[in-house]
Design a binder for these strands. Sequence first.
RNA 1: GGAGAGUUGGUAGAGCGGUUGAAUACACCAGUCUUGAAAACUGGCAUGGUGCAAGCCAUCUGGGGUUCGAAUCCCUAACUCUCCGCCA
Length: 428
Amino acid sequence: MIDINILRTNPEIVRENIKKKYQDAKLPLVDEVVELDKKNRSLKQEGDDLRAQRNKLSSEIGNLMREKKFDEAEKIKAEVKAEADRLAQIEEEQTSLDDEIKKRMMLIPNIIDESVPIGKDDSENVEIQKFGEPKVPAFEIPYHADILEKLGGLDKESSGRTSGNGFYYLMGDPARLVSAMISYARDYMIDKGFTYCIPPFMIRSDVVNGVMSFAEMDAMMYKIEGEDLFLIGTSEHSMIGKFKDQILKEKELPITMTSYSPCFRKEVGAHGLEERGIYRVHQFEKQEMIVLCKPEESMEWYNKMWSYTVEIFRNLNIPVRTLECCSGDLADLKVKSCDVEAWSPRQQKYFEVGSCSTLGDAQARRLGIRAKGENGNYYVHTLNNTVLASTRALIAFLENNLNEDGTISIPEALRPYMGGKSVIEKKI
RNA sequence: GGAGAGUUGGUAGAGCGGUUGAAUACACCAGUCUUGAAAACUGGCAUGGUGCAAGCCAUCUGGGGUUCGAAUCCCUAACUCUCCGCCA
């Protein structure tokens, strides 16, 4: 949600921004909000005046009562009552105006950063960095589910029975590998000064509404029957929600945290779950990082954050590239965002393993996260980035560290977490 | 799950229908004093909206209600604490 003041003083910026994002259908929203806001403010003024009048008369009544002048008090009571209907009417109109304005404000996209490349959709995203040789080995790299099967690491038949499509049993060394990668990623972030956190895995609807629209929520999140609770799709939501309605001390900034959680996703409306693999599933685990900082520091953090992910993947011996989201592909709440993609020697292309975003103050405005500065309070900037997501990282890891004989090499960085092993032997 | 008590400003904590946006203390900021610090003293110190400003409006966990008037009474949701039960 952008600052409504921008619409009042500089609607042209907002229109320009909408055009840059190829969302011209939303252009009318700008004038609508400006119009509604004008109406709302004059109504508010009228309501405030009426209330001021009422407050004054009421305190007079109080005085008269104390002086036991009951007749006069009754007279004024009647006077106040006469205005009550008008006030009630104004309040009602205002509530509906507020709703209308908010509804539109939620649809108006955040102002993107100047540096964001202009483009219509994901085909126009821009590669900004590439690390490691995207090699295609001389031998064939099997589908990741087949690699896992040979290692005795995957059982989707059983998970089908217990939980249905989109779940999996990971077993043995591959399961240990997942834990190892997450632990390694966690420790890497701790070394970078981030505070480790295990957050709630369920959150309330008001927290969810602060971070996504109802439609998004409905498509992504599992609801707990009979309770106002949802299983998180990412720990970002618990982590940012942690600061909802808080006024932070400026000297506490930046707040840098790394969190672990399982993630649950309905994947409604996505490309569909895979029959055999674990590329798109209902449940995975993720190490996440979030930063809350002063506005002027957010771009610096943004760049640091995605480069951390890149380095972790490099240390896992996985070639990666960073792809910046172009204007048209950028989600409405984001100021700037990029995906870290891992090389798939099997598909001979890159696939997404993480996503780094700065949301400017939009998310903080929606959730009421402020900092107390010298010249008053201000909304902080919020950023989030995937450190490492279990299933995607596992796929990338297996494909890139597979040897011709079917064994899996374990890079130096991971060995302490794998009981010192340097290789995973195949079982079949 | 049962029974009870509570939720007030940065913190602690008064207030329990009428100048209460809120006593008091602590914390914090500025000043005086001091070679410096501490102490003492003086002043300042919630948030949002609106207005050039004075001011005005809203907010005492959220929502609803009673009333001329609600931090104060009623209903409701959430949370916290104590006791009992259950439990990794």
